[in-house]
């Protein structure tokens, strides 16, 4: 019974994370995007807890704790605070309409499932691997289709969630000092993104990447 439970729960959480990223692809409001990222990261943290219990690896509990601290608490709070302090518009911008974005996201999911089946067909938890592939692709879609620094930044964070989930799903977690170093890097990267948001708001009075057309050959 418990074996069945531990097999199903990770799959459920991976699917949940993927569903949230598909919703994010079509969201155009800053607070909504950050909020869904928070839920997605919470699912990732719970996923690490489930793996810690099912694989009997207590160090994954520490990883889950740090994921929760960095991705669920610190990064979203930081992003929202900076957006409010600097008067960043709540409305975000994209090259694609929400329905088109969702369609592209669905195609990416289909591709990810086909790719995962072709490459990792023999591994257990194929659906989880496919879900995290799809998660990475949807993050990439956000990053490419958004016309503002916030949207692109969150796209990168979603992609990173996918890679982290991949590490947990396939490799059963990395050595803990690597996990922590990666999380620290992510936090530093977010601080840096926020610094650049501030400079952009100061220089262009906007975080739109439409202003970034000066360095062209």
């Amino acid at each position: 019974m418990s074996a069945q439970l531990t097999f199903d729960l990770p799959t459920l959480f991976a699917c949940g994370m993927l569903l949230l990223s598909l919703i994010m692809v079509s969201r155009m409001r800053l607070s909504s995007l950050v909020g869904i990222f928070r839920y997605q990261s919470a699912l990732l943290a719970i996923y690490a807890v489930i793996l810690a219990i099912s694989h009997d690896e207590p160090e994954l509990l520490a990883v889950a704790l740090f994921i929760a601290l960095v991705k669920v608490v610190l990064i979203p709070a930081f992003l929202i605070r900076v957006a409010k302090q600097n008067g960043v518009s709540e409305r975000l911008d994209s090259y694609l309409r929400p329905t088109t974005s969702t369609s592209v996201g669905l195609v990416a999911i289909l591709l990810a499932f086909a790719g995962a089946e072709a490459t990792f067909a023999t591994s257990a938890g194929l659906i989880i691997v496919a879900c995290v592939f799809a998660l990475i692709l949807t993050g990439l879609i956000l990053l490419i289709t958004r016309k503002d620094m916030f949207g692109q930044g969150i796209g990168f964070l979603v992609m990173e969630n996918g890679i982290y989930a991949f590490g947990l799903a396939l490799a059963g977690g990395m050595p803990i000092f690597v996990e922590l170093a990666v999380l620290f890097n992510l936090l530093a990267l977010t601080v840096l993104m926020v610094l650049l948001f501030r400079v952009a708001q100061k220089v262009h009075s906007s975080v739109s990447t439409e202003h970034f057309k000066r360095l062209i050959d």
Partner: peptide, 16 residues
Amino acid sequence: KESLEAAWKYLILCSS
């Protein structure tokens, strides 16, 4: 303006 553009592209493209 140019530095900001270069820094953002560098951070996002290189990191992703």
